[in-house]
Simulated assay, not measured.
Amino acid sequence: MASNSNSTIHVACCFDRNYELPFIVLANSIRRASSRHVVLHALHEGPLDLAPRELRDAPGLTVNFIDVTDRYGRFNTHGPQTTVTYARLSLPDILEGVERVLYLDTDMLVMRDIAPLYFSDLGECALGAVIDYGLLIRLLRDEPLPVEGATTLICDYLRDTIRLSNPHRYFNAGALLIDLEKFRSLGIAQRAREALSNELSRAIFNDQDALNFAVAGAFVELDPRWNAIQDILFKEVHQRLPAEIEAVVDLYKEPWIMHYAGVKPWRSNILPGPWERQFWQAAQEANVEWPLLWAFWRAIPYLRPYQIDSYLWEARNRGPQIGTATVLMWAMKHFMRR
Rank of each mutant, 00 (worst) to 15 (best):
T326A: 04
I232Q: 00
F65I: 11
W294F: 13
I131D: 02
L109A: 06
V237N: 12
V38I: 13
D132Y: 13
N212P: 08
C13D: 07
P52V: 14
A51Q: 07
P80C: 04
E289P: 05
G187S: 11
L186D: 10
Y170Q: 09
H168T: 15
P144F: 05
L196Y: 01
S165N: 13
H238N: 11
R32K: 14
R193Y: 01
P167V: 14
E236T: 10
I114M: 04
W275A: 07
I178Q: 10
A247T: 08
R56K: 13
P146A: 05
T82D: 08
N28C: 15
M108W: 00
T324Q: 11
W256I: 03
F234Y: 13
H238R: 07
R88P: 07
E124C: 03
G73M: 07
P242Y: 03
Y260C: 09
L122V: 15
R138C: 11
L117Q: 11
L222S: 00
I66V: 11
A261H: 09
P144M: 08
L43C: 14
Y72M: 09
I300K: 12
Y311S: 00
Q278S: 14
P80K: 05
D309N: 12
Q208K: 06
N269C: 08
R318L: 13
A286P: 01
V11T: 08
L158G: 04
A243D: 12
A331R: 02
L222H: 04
V11E: 02
S7Q: 15
L50S: 13
N28S: 15
R53K: 05
I94V: 10
P167T: 15
D223V: 04
N64F: 01
V327H: 07
H37N: 08
S201Y: 06
V288W: 02
A150D: 07
N269E: 15
K264C: 09
D132W: 09
Y133C: 09
D67E: 11
L89Y: 00
A203I: 05
H334F: 15
R32A: 14
P255R: 03
A216P: 01
Y157S: 02
P301T: 10
T152L: 15
F183E: 01
V25G: 07
R31P: 01
H41T: 04
P144T: 02
L251D: 03
I114T: 00
L43R: 04
I178R: 05
R240Y: 04
A214W: 00
V39E: 06
E221F: 01
T324A: 15
R100M: 10
A325C: 09
R337L: 15
R298Q: 08
L48K: 12
T161K: 06
G134P: 01
A189G: 14
L95K: 10
I137T: 10
Y170C: 12
L158Y: 03
P224G: 00
L164T: 04
E276L: 02
Q307W: 02
T77F: 02
Q190C: 10
N198Y: 08
W226R: 07
T151K: 15
D70W: 05
R71A: 03
D121V: 10
S29D: 12
E124Y: 04
A243W: 13
L153E: 03
P274E: 13
P146N: 12
L122F: 06
A283N: 13
T83G: 00
